[in-house]
């Protein structure tokens, strides 16, 4: 089980116990097996009653801190990939996966410096989903944009289409993947709001936790559709911006003081 245990042992045993009965029945009538399994209490799946989003307070984001990036690398097993032997640092840097990256900006007029983490913006109308030939790039009902690695053929058209350069392609073999984050050579991937945590009922992302642990608390994650959520109330109080708002993609990630 992963460090962030999404399937506690006890529950699974119980489950197996339950399903053995079901399976017994299924030997008589194999056709009804899947229905029976469902009846034993599977969850209903994600719903469009929620939309997950993230709010980043760029004022609180600190210049040389990479806590969010490191946490993401660990949470999703991105650090399992190492620089291949004989590759130059520049090439490695251009090819290694980065689901979240730190960017420092300077306003051309005022010279103001802004620091922010940049990741998949989880658009309501994601260009990556539009262009994906197989439908591997998709948007879940709860607003999370992600890649179904089972059907990704590695054409990289989504990487061409994404206005935020949020996607990475896996350029090499990966071994010892995390249970919660399967990933392998030849597919495209990007930030998925730590979807395995959300599905397990944990309502924080790794980057958010790391940022809070550092004492910055620049990242707030939550349900944009729930007016009582923290993120929704801050969005009401403060001015925030979408990056490339001109594209009308209605991003799920917003930035204040940008």
């Amino acid at each position: 089980m992963g460090k962030h245990n999404d399937q506690p042992d006890g529950k699974r045993r119980q489950f197996i116990g339950g399903t053995i009965l079901a399976a017994g029945a299924a030997t008589v009538a194999p056709g009804i097996l899947l229905t029976v399994a469902q009846a034993t209490g599977e969850s209903q799946g994600v719903s469009s009653d929620v939309r997950y989003g993230m709010l980043i307070d760029t004022d609180k984001c600190v210049a040389d801190c990479t806590a969010c990036v490191d946490a993401c690398d660990k949470e999703n097993g991105l650090d399992l990939q190492q620089k291949p032997k004989g590759q130059s640092d520049d090439d490695w840097n251009a090819q290694r996966p980065q689901w979240v990256r730190k960017v420092q900006l300077k306003d051309r007029q005022t010279g103001d410096i802004t620091d922010l983490p940049m990741m998949c913006q989880h658009c309501e109308f994601p260009p990556c989903v539009d262009v994906c030939p197989t439908g591997a790039s998709f948007r879940r009902a709860d607003g999370i944009v992600m890649v179904d690695r089972h059907t990704c053929i590695g054409c990289r058209y989504c990487m061409m289409a994404c206005p935020y350069k949020a996607r990475s392609f896996i350029h090499q073999n990966v071994v010892n993947q995390l249970v919660a984050a399967p990933r392998g050579k030849g597919c495209v991937e990007s930030c998925n709001f730590c979807v395995h945590r959300i599905d397990a009922g944990k309502m924080t992302t790794a980057c958010q936790d790391a940022c809070a642990k550092e004492g910055h608390q620049a990242i707030v994650f939550g349900d944009l559709k729930n007016p009582e959520s923290e993120i929704a109330s801050i969005l009401r109080e403060k001015n925030s911006r979408q990056i490339r708002a001109d594209l009308e993609l209605n991003t799920g990630v917003r930035y204040t003081d940008l």
């Binding site: 489950f15 399994a37 209490g41 599977e42 969850s43 799946g45 879940r140 009902a141 179904d148």
Partner: peptide, 8 residues
């Protein structure tokens, strides 16, 4: 696709 993790 649906985030159902307690699958059999």
């Amino acid at each position: 696709r649906k985030g159902i993790r307690d699958i059999r």
